[in-house]
């Protein structure tokens, strides 16, 4: 597979490590009232997507950036690649 890195262009997937659902960016607030339940869902519940899915890939043998890759799990077609840091900020994460 080839991942079109937003800063470096197309690179072989062999340079990357796969993590999984980009929902892992959405780490719950530890002080929420139902924090335990939210963390349970965060840690254990995943959608088993057949189709386009946002996934986390890490360019370990490269610039060490985490990427959010939108990949169709049925065809491997990759339609979007973003820096996970940008995605995280857009989803409201900060410090």
């Amino acid at each position: 597979m080839i991942i079109n890195h937003p800063l470096l262009g197309p690179r072989d997937a062999a340079e990357f490590i796969y993590l999984g659902d980009a929902a892992l960016i959405d780490r719950p607030d530890w002080q929420a009232e139902d924090a335990a339940e939210q963390f349970h869902a965060y840690g254990y519940l995943r959608d088993n997507v057949a189709g386009p899915m946002q996934e986390l890939w890490y360019h370990e043998q490269g610039d060490r950036s985490w990427l959010v890759v939108t990949r169709d799990t049925l065809t491997h077609e990759i339609t979007n690649v973003e820096l996970a840091r940008d995605v995280a900020r857009n989803r409201g994460r900060s410090v």
Binding site: I25, R27, Y58, E60, A84, R85, V87, A88, R93
Partner: peptide, 13 residues
């Protein structure tokens, strides 16, 4: 790897 994940994905600022 996990620390880079935390740095970029969880605490990006």
């Amino acid at each position: 790897r996990r620390m880079e994940f935390a740095r970029q994905c969880l605490f990006p600022d």
